[in-house]
């Protein structure tokens, strides 16, 4: 763990990505704990559409709510959805990918055809459909985004798991009488940690994007709770009078995704054995 952290900070884009993600995690935590400069839903009616100032660092919105505080609460919200949905997708995808690879034949066919069906749906439409069925809200977004990204994890796990299964050390373990569950968790799963880590980091970037998109369409987090996508969507009609309403949430979404993308790239360089040699 320590070695990986050191490698990330020794890697140009890893350093930048790591710092960005770290700052965001802190902001998200503060936002979730309510440790914001102002209450994110309190309406300071006298100060409606106040430009950024010492009292309101990023200005106020149409209802006189502090944009900086809402931004922090929104980051907390977006990160919660992103983390849980990626956790969902990773767990479901890993279990199904391993099952497909280990059980093979009929199970492999069934699982992968189901994944083909899910993949044939455009991501945002599938998420939209799930959200409309279950009604918009935080946990619906988690499940919707989780389901959308499950096929990707299934594929990421199944391919390498298939080739690992055919390796000598798995045969050897079988000969020694290791139980299938031991082989799957010990020999397959442990060897899949590296590709999974990279995929998880990149999936967090997509999940943030999808969450923001759903909220932007009004199908994610519901008002008055703050969410980056919602803030951006609300800013549309006030673009000319109060550009800060658009610029800050827009930048916040962009930089968070950038952070995870940079980190994911660095992790891929560090964890991929082919490039690891080149770095050493």
């Amino acid at each position: 763990m320590k070695r990986i952290l050191r490698a990330i900070f020794g890697h140009g884009s890893g350093r930048i990505g790591g710092v960005i993600v770290g700052v965001y995690l802190l902001l998200a935590l503060l936002g979730l704990l309510g440790l914001t400069p102002h209450n994110p839903i309190t309406q300071y009616r006298i100060d409606r559409l106040h430009a950024p100032s010492a009292a309101y660092w990023m200005g106020t919105d149409l209802f006189g709510r502090d944009v900086a505080s809402r931004l922090m609460a929104g980051i907390g919200q977006s990160f919660t959805v992103a983390f849980f949905s990626v956790a969902f997708a990773t767990l479901a995808g890993t279990v199904m990918g391993l099952a497909a690879a280990w059980l093979g034949r009929r199970w492999d066919g069934i699982v992968m055809r189901i994944m083909d069906v899910l993949l044939a749906f455009p991501a945002i439409l599938l998420a939209l459909l799930i959200v409309t069925v279950a009604g918009p809200g935080t946990w619906t977004s988690v499940v919707a985004i989780g389901i959308v990204y499950t096929p990707i994890f299934t594929r990421v796990v199944r391919g390498p798991a298939l080739s690992l299964k055919a390796r000598e050390f798995v045969d050897a373990a079988r000969t020694f009488g290791s139980s299938p569950s031991y082989i799957v968790t010990r020999h397959l799963l442990l060897n899949l940690v590296a590709p999974l880590t990279v995929q998880v980091t990149l999936a967090l970037a997509w999940a943030l994007l999808t969450e923001a998109g759903l909220s932007f369409l009004g199908l994610g987090t519901q008002p008055p709770a703050a969410s980056l996508g919602l803030m951006l969507s609300d800013s549309r009609n006030l673009m000319e009078t109060a550009p800060w309403l658009m610029i800050f949430p827009g930048l916040a979404i962009m930089i968070s995704i950038l952070g995870f993308n940079l980190l994911g790239d660095a992790l891929r360089d560090i964890l991929d054995p082919k490039t690891r040699r080149a770095l050493a």
Partner: peptide, 14 residues
């Protein structure tokens, strides 16, 4: 990298 991290709705509004 920046391009890849910019959501279409952020760019569109910008």
């Amino acid at each position: 990298m920046i391009g890849q991290s910019t959501p279409s709705f952020v760019l569109g509004l910008l």
